[in-house]
Write a protein that binds this DNA or RNA. Sequence first.
RNA 1: CGGGGCGUAGCGCAGCCCGGUAGCGCGCCUGCUUUGGGAGCAGGAGGUCCCCGGUUCGAAUCCGGGCGCCCCGACCA
Length: 481
Amino acid sequence: MADDKGLTPRAEDFSTWYTDVIARAELADYSPVRGCMVIRPGGYAIWEHMQAALDRMFKESGHQNAYFPLFIPQSFLAREAEHVEGFAPETAVVTQGGGKELEEPLVVRPTSETIIYASFAKWIQSWRDLPMLINQWCNVVRWEMRTRLFLRTTEFLWQEGHTAHATADEAEAEALQMLKIYRVFMEDHMAMPVVTGLKTDSERFAGAVRTYACEGLMQDNKALQAATSHNLGQNFARAFDVQFQTAEGGLDYVWSTSWGASTRLIGGLIMTHGDDAGLVAPPQLAQYQVVIVPIYRKDEERSVVLEVAHDLREELAANGFRVHLDARDGLKPGAKYYEWEGKGVPLRIEIGPRDIAAGTLMLARRIGGKESIPRDAAADRVGVELEAIQRSLLETARERREANSLRGATKDEFIGYLEGGGGFVYAGWCGSAECEQTIKDQTKATIRVLPDDEFRSDTPPSTCVWCGSPSTAEAIWARAY
RNA sequence: CGGGGCGUAGCGCAGCCCGGUAGCGCGCCUGCUUUGGGAGCAGGAGGUCCCCGGUUCGAAUCCGGGCGCCCCGACCA
């Protein structure tokens, strides 16, 4: 950190700011193992709220949770050619157990397609067994070269959905449905706007037919892939022999999907809303939505104030708010304000002798604004304010993204925008991997997605921004995490 | 794996060049006074100076060899 009090400002050094926020908000800590992290209670609480919201959405759309093993026989990974090529370099492999060399090395799952299809092959016989809609919450390990807390760690937590369907259309619809669910979650819960769309072949999941993704734009104008949803076609079904009898009596391979979102989302949350004072947690996901800070001088005041503060806490808790009373003695109120601001708590209620005498409370918003409100109105106002903050965060983030997006640029403008630290660039693309690669080499920008309809420009680009050939699709370019 | 930086108290650092009782700030503990935006005073606890070897009467400091971490790049959720 810059010093004992302040964080490194975003404008000075964004990535140091990011690490400072995590330390200040006590979200995570470095571990004794390189590339791994300890998720502290403050960070884990956010993850639990993310899990709860996503899990509910998955169940509402008919999915069931299950759990598959951490260890995967090495040979499983090898069965799908593209998949093994994609993941083999970054797997951790266990070669010994119980003091003996294993007959077959076990891979620590980097993702679970292979071991799950081995089960699907046993569970699916008939079209009546379909669709098979499974999700699991677990940890995975990918031996990354360079790691950053939450954004890329060797071990991370995530959910991976795996589904099998009777037809190609159903699998495609499932992949799109889950993409939509992620998007709704990110907007409604994280207050993080994302563009959705199709990945190009170079960014496609190893073993997928099509990969869709949600892409957010962080405050440093780098894109963050926040979730992916894959249509796997029959690739894994063929590799693991997952066949079913059709209603017509024939035999076919299932059509499958997989989709995932990870603790990386917490990194996205930090970089979407955080400011130079620390974390800004959207009310939907905040560990505490409201913190009450009592103020008193003498012992007589202390007991009176604390009694009122306790009552207030009970009332707010009874109304369903996540509320914390900071009754620690010996810390001045100001010190507590700074601490909870750093931790991103959306609302703070200050309560002291003057407020008690007047029958009021002081209500301070993490995103700015402080006012005195009637004590009786507390529960109502807290509810109203939390909703307003949630909306405001999304709106502010959306405006920032749009202010940092460029459409209809010439090649020179395209290059200049990216080199000037700009965000999303919408432009035509001829569809060739050559242009994509050249652009990456020269600008460090990659195609984040070929955006879905609603994100596309009103006038579709007619030519490739790089080579000038006819455009086959509008693409969004950006430098990315 | 390339480039850069750093390993000394929980955290941040000084000391190292020029060898001689291991220090500072924050934090922590105890007490008193404080408390409406980061409290003050007094007392106190806390260290294999990253590891191994060498030089020396004596090494945090000099020499050799390891290891680890962070940041920037190539790969990736």
